[in-house]
Simulated assay, not measured.
Amino acid sequence: MTNITTLRPGEHFMFKNFEWVCLDPNHSDGGVLAIMAKPWAEDVKFCQGDIFADEKGNWNNYRTSNVRGILSDMANAVFDGESLLAHTVDLVADNGDSAYGTVKDTVFILTCDEYRKYRDYIPHYDRWIWTATPWCCGDDDSDAGHASSVRVVYTTGQLDNFCAYYEQSVAPACVLNPKSLNLRQSMAYVEEVSE
C-alpha cells in the first residue's frame, strides 16, 4: 500500500466505485484534492428548475442551494466521516461581491478560481457543469434581478455565466484524507486503512 499523496495531478483513480481525477496531491486542506471524472448522477435531477433556489428567491447562492444539500446527502451516504477532509468553498461572486461568504463541506463543487487553477487536469465533460461561483450576489435589492446567474464550465472548458434554473450537471470534488486512506496500485484504487 502507498500513501495517496503519491498520486500525480491528472492521474485517474477509483474510490467508492467512482472514477476520480487527482487535481492536487498536497492540497492546502492537508489532503488530496480530487474531482469526479464524469458528471455525477444524471438520474439525480439537477434540472428541476430549483437546483440553486432558496427561500429568498436567490437562484445562485450555493450556501442555501439544493445542489449543496444533495452533495451533503452524498457525503453522508457514500463516505465515512474520516475519509474526507472539510474544504472551504469561497462564494465570492464573479464581480467580487462577498455577501454569500464561505461554506465548509466535504463534498462540493469547484469555484471558478479553483477551476482556473486546476483546468489542465479537469476533464472536458460531455455536459456543462455548475461551479459554486455566482455571477453576482442577490442579497442587495440592487442586485436582485441578477441573482439567477451562476458561472458554468462548457464542454469546451470555457467559463460563462448561465441562469441557474436551466439544466446542468455537477462534477463533485472532495479532499481525501491521507491519514485514513491508502493507494493500491493497478489502476490506482484508494481504500480505507484497516486497523
Rank of each mutant, 00 (worst) to 15 (best):
N3W: 10
L7V: 00
G10N: 03
E11Y: 01
M14D: 11
F15C: 03
F15H: 05
K16G: 05
W20K: 05
L23R: 07
P25F: 07
P25E: 08
D29P: 00
D29L: 03
G30Q: 03
V32D: 00
I35M: 04
K38G: 00
W40R: 01
A41G: 12
A41N: 14
E42F: 09
D54N: 15
D54M: 09
G57P: 06
N58F: 05
N58S: 05
W59C: 01
N60A: 02
N60F: 00
R63S: 02
T64K: 08
R68I: 08
S72P: 00
D73Q: 15
A75R: 11
A75N: 11
F79W: 03
G81K: 12
G81Y: 06
G81L: 04
E82A: 13
L85P: 01
A86E: 08
H87T: 06
H87N: 07
D90V: 10
L91W: 04
V92L: 04
A93Q: 09
N95C: 15
N95K: 14
S98H: 15
A99E: 15
G101W: 06
K104A: 14
K104L: 03
L110Q: 06
C112Q: 12
Y115T: 02
R119V: 05
P123L: 10
H124G: 11
R127C: 13
A132S: 15
A132N: 03
W135L: 11
G138I: 01
G138N: 02
D140N: 12
D140M: 06
D141F: 06
D143Y: 03
D143R: 03
D143L: 02
G145Q: 07
V153C: 13
Q158I: 00
D160H: 12
D160L: 08
N161Q: 12
Y165T: 11
E167A: 15
S169F: 07
N177S: 04
L181Q: 01
L181T: 01
N182R: 08
N182I: 03
R184Y: 03
Q185N: 12
S186D: 13
S186C: 05
M187T: 11
E191C: 10
E192M: 10
V193R: 11
